[in-house]
Structure formats: structure tokens, C-alpha cells
Design a protein around this nucleic acid. Structure first.
Lengths: 200, 200
DNA sequence: GGGTGCATGTAATGGGTTACATGATTCT
DNA sequence: AGAATCATGTAACCCATTACATGCACCC
């Protein structure tokens, strides 16, 4: 009864993500993987083990057409292209509300038991996270340059920018949190050393 | 070749989360679910379908002991308590590095295809997200009061605060992003109306 | 007498990662 | 000659959600 998910929500799974990707242009399974890896990997990616069966299913359901290419001895390539039905399904999915997900944050789960954790382990965990977001931010700066260089020419560019901005905003927030948290952890340590068993 | 000491990352799954929870105090499956729901639901939760089998496995492996309680006609309760081995395993897990996860962000995936989406659908999606983070922030404020009221008395409280602060920082970042993005979406719409060709 | 909350579990289903399996082409 | 990259696919396994199934206790 307390299911909050609206009825018109379409669950987003491999099928839907491929439908979305194929709105951009016809692609093979390999192309799709590459595009996800390079463009959406910080918020979505799929493995080959999911992509190939899903593409076949798409074709079986009449949502995509396969164009098997192998001109004069070249490599076999199966290029999938959305049918009108597939395009309609994609638009339907895009318009449907997102299901709310509770992403699991392993770091926070551990931190929740910080009081019972080995000395210094929480500090180390937060520092690893900090290093990761710093690396992410550097990577995002590169991607930003890339997108901005083609901003006027691609109709999709402003949208790619939005997804990137999300990553940047989130990473900056986490970075600030890491610094605050490290300081806090240090002050807890200090209290332990000077004051004995109980924090004051 | 095997001279490289592998950092023993322990995959965090239901078992590990229960191990963590049981470091706090002995609990039943029902208790565990309730605690997760009330305290960690925005970064971790488990369903009964996972909890009960996992608890049984914990007992089978000697990591927890069951205390079956049913004093004078009361309800049956199976309270699980960590054994020394279980406690050691929990500490080992807490000290192990977090596996990096790529959380799926359905909203960003859709936004990536924003250019191909029905008119207004992206705006609606971002607005739904905004409403959600605003609700989250209000909830967090309540929890903050709760934690702060018992700050000096519980050794765990500073750590609970850290997990909460993470949620607050992230929610604020997303909120700001939502506003920026809504403005940006509006300006794209305006351009379309005044100058550009329109899509189907 | 009925609804809600307490309390435990199992089964069906879905979906994803990883490893496995194969083979051609291009680059060094 | 050998490595990397292109390219497609299958199978085993793991984990999680959801629905199902049961039953007592407490309050109105």
C-alpha cells in the first residue's frame, strides 16, 4: 500500500538505456559499450553480458532493426537502428517519472559503526574517498573542455553539460564533506588520547 | 607475479551490513529492519527477504549466536548476538577498503538524451527531483535535532552526525544544481520558440 | 470482530557482473 | 610474431526485490 512509485513509471533497465542510446544514432553492441564508457560511465554503464542479449530482445520485439555489415572481408558488425515503434517507446520512457532509488553508500554504512571500528580505519576510508573525488574532478574538467568545444554545434551538448555539472556539484560537496569529516575524526581521536574512554 | 600484496577488499553485502548492525547490540531480524529503516535508509537498507536467510547463515558460520526468546506466551523472537569470531569479522570488514561503485542515476541518463525527449519532460523530471531533495532536507533537519539531543551521551552520535552531514551536503548540492538546470532548460526552450526549428 | 503492528520465514523472479569462448584485424 | 583492439556472444553465479505464507498480540 505504501508503494510510492507512480503507476506510469517505467523501470529503467538495460533495455531502456539502449533505447535511449539508439535515439542518438544507429550503433552496434560494441559501439554502445564504448559510448557508455566514455560519456555516461559516472552515472550509467552496462556490460556486454547485458548489452548483447538486450539488443537481440529489442530486435525480436520490433523496436530495433539489425543491419549486419561485413563489406569485402571486413569485421562482422551488427548495427542496430530504432524502428518507429522503438523511437516511440524511447520517448515514452523519457517522459515517465524516475523511480526513486536508494543508492547504497558503503562508506556511510561503515562510518555509521565508526565507534566500533579499528583505530584509524575510518580516517583511511574517508581519505581514500577524498582522493577518488579529486581524481573525478580532474577528469570532469577534461570532459568539460571537450563538451564546451562543441557546444554550439551539437544540440545534445547543453544536456551533456547538465549531466556533467551534476557530477561536478556532487563531487565538490563530497570533497568539502571529506575535509570536515577528517577534521572531526581527528578531534575524536584527540579526545580519546587525552580524556580516556569517554568522549566529552 | 604474486609478490603484490592484494588489498583485501571485502564485498559489502547483506551479511556485512548485519555484522555491522550487530556490533551495536544484539537484535532480531525485525529489529534490524526497523533500525535500518529509521537510521540508515538513505544510504543503506535491506529487505526481510535478505535479512532472515542471512541471519541464519551468520549463525551457521559461527559468527552469531541465536537466543530464542518466548517467555510466558509472548511472541517468538530470535535475538542474534555476535560471537567473538563475528566481532572480529566485523572489524575486519570495517577496516577493509570500500569497493568503488558506480551508482546509477536514472535522471542523468534521461537528461543525457534530453535533446530527443518530449517537450517539457526533462523540466518535469528535474522538478520532481527538486521536490524530493527538499523533502529529504526537511527530514534531515528532524534527524539532526534527534541526534544532537543525545550527542554527549552516545559514543556513536558523532559518527551518525557524519553520515547525516553527508546527506545534507549532497542534498544541498543537488538542490542548487536543480535550480541551475531548470533555468538552463528554460533558456533552451526560449531559443527553440524564437529561433529554431522544432522537433516532433 | 477487525485492523495494525510484531514476528518469522520461503519462493519466484529479475537483473547484473564476471568469466568463459571465439575469432578477425591492425599495429608494432 | 605477438599484443592490442575490434567484435560477438553464452553460461554460471550472485544478489536483491517482491510476493507469498503464516500466526499471535494488542487496541479500538
Amino acid at each position: 500500500m505504501n508503494s510510492v512509485t507512480p503507476i506510469d513509471a517505467i523501470r529503467t533497465t538495460t533495455t531502456e538505456s539502449l533505447l535511449g542510446m539508439l535515439t542518438l544514432r544507429p550503433m552496434s553492441g560494441y559501439d554502445l559499450r564504448q559510448l557508455m564508457e566514455s560519456a555516461t560511465s559516472n552515472f550509467w554503464s552496462e556490460s556486454f553480458g547485458q548489452i548483447y542479449p538486450a539488443l537481440k530482445k529489442l530486435a525480436d520485439e520490433g523496436l530495433a532493426e539489425v543491419d549486419t555489415q561485413q563489406p569485402n572481408g571486413e569485421r562482422l558488425r551488427k548495427v542496430y537502428k530504432l524502428t518507429p515503434a522503438g523511437r516511440a517507446r524511447a520517448r515514452q520512457w523519457l517522459a515517465s517519472p524516475c523511480a526513486q532509488q536508494v543508492p547504497r553508500e558503503e562508506l556511510l554504512l561503515k562510518l555509521f559503526f565508526g565507534d566500533k571500528a579499528p583505530r584509524g580505519s575510518m580516517r583511511a576510508a574517508v581519505e581514500r574517498r577524498k582522493a577518488k573525488v579529486e581524481a573525478d574532478l580532474a577528469r570532469y574538467a577534461e570532459i568539460a573542455k571537450d563538451i564546451d568545444s562543441k557546444l554550439p554545434t551539437h544540440a545534445g551538448a547543453p544536456y551533456w553539460r547538465m549531466t556533467l555539472n551534476f557530477g561536478i556539484a556532487q563531487a565538490n560537496a563530497v570533497l568539502t564533506w571529506c575535509d570536515q569529516t577528517l577534521a572531526e575524526l581527528d578531534s575524536i581521536e584527540t579526545k580519546h588520547k587525552s580524556g580516556g574512554r569517554h568522549a566529552a
